[in-house]
Amino acid sequence: MDMTKNRIGHTKKIIIIFILLAVCIISFFISVGRGSLDISFDKVIRAIFIERDTVNHQIIWNIRLPRTLVAALVGICLAISGAILQGVMRNPLAAPNIIGVSSGAGLMAYVILILFPNYYYLVPMGAFIGALTATLFIYILAWKNGVNPTRLILAGVAVSSLLGAGISSLMTLFPDKVAGAVGFMVGGLSARTWPDFNMLWPYALLGIVLTFLFPKKLNILMLGDEIATGLGLHVERTRLMFIVFAALLAASAVSVVGLLGFVGLIVPHTARLIIGSDYRYLFPATAILGAAIVMLCDTVGRLVFDPVEIPVGIVMSLLGVPFFLFLLRERKGMEK
C-alpha cells in the first residue's frame, strides 16, 4: 500500500492499530458479559448468535448489546469529531464544545426538559438541532473573508458562554425542575437501546468513511492556510466540510447520551500520544480507542456501585483524566 522507505514506522503504526482493535474487541465482550449477572465469553457468543429464548439471550440482546453498541458508536463519533477539530483549528484544546455543540445541545435540552417536560421525547432531536444551530451561528460570526481558526475558537467560546448563561438562567428560574434535567448534562448511557443505536449508526458510519477518505486533506490543512492553498487545496471549502462533519458527529452523539464532550478532547490526544499526528493513522486509532474507552467506562460505571449506576461521563473523568495525564508526562520524558 505504501511504498515509502519509511516502512518500519508504517508497520509499527499498523501493529499499534491492530493492538487497539484487539483492546476494543475485548472491551466489547467485557461490556456485554459483565453486569448484575456475569455471563462468560462463550455464553455471550451463544446468546448473541445461537440461542433465542434463554434468559441470557434476553439480557444481552435487549439490554447489554444495544447499550454497548451505543457506547461504542458514541465513542467513535465524539472522538473523531474532536480529532477533526484539533486538526482544523490547529489547536490542541479544540473539542466539540468549541464549536458550540455542547452548549447548543444543552440549552435546547434544558428548554425542552424544563419548559415543556411533556415533550421529553423530543430531547434528542432538539439537542441535535441545537448543536448544529450553535455551530452554524459560530461559523457565521467568525466569517470575515474566510474563517480563521483563532477567530472561530474565540467566537465559539463567546457563544458557548452566552448559551451557558441561558442554561444557568433556566436553572435559576426553575430550580424545582432541574433534577430531571441533570442527567443530560452529565452524559449517561442508562437504558439506551436499539432506537438509539439506529439513530447513531449512520453518523458513525459517516465518520468511519471519512477516516478512510480524507486524512490527507486534513494533514495538508494542518500545514497552514497559505501552504495548503499553494498545494492546491480549497482551504475554506475543505475547512467548512470538516467542521460540518465534526458538528454532525458530535451532535448525533450528544443528542443520544447528553454532554459527554470530554471524550472528544481526551481520546484524540491519547491516540496522538500513542500513534503520532498523521491522520492516516490517527483517524482509525482515535475511532477504535474512542469506542473502547466509552464501552469500558460505561461498564465500570455499571459495576462499581451495582445496582446504582454512575453515569459514564463521571467515570470518564475519574479514570480517563489521570490516565491521560500519566501518558502526557511519560511521553514528554521520552522526547527529551
Binding site: G224, E226, I227, G230, S277
Partner: peptide, 11 residues
C-alpha cells in the same frame, strides 16, 4: 509557495 507562516507536526 513557501510562506513565513507554516506549521508541521513535529512527528
Amino acid at each position: 509557495v513557501l510562506p513565513q507562516v507554516r506549521n508541521v507536526p513535529s512527528d
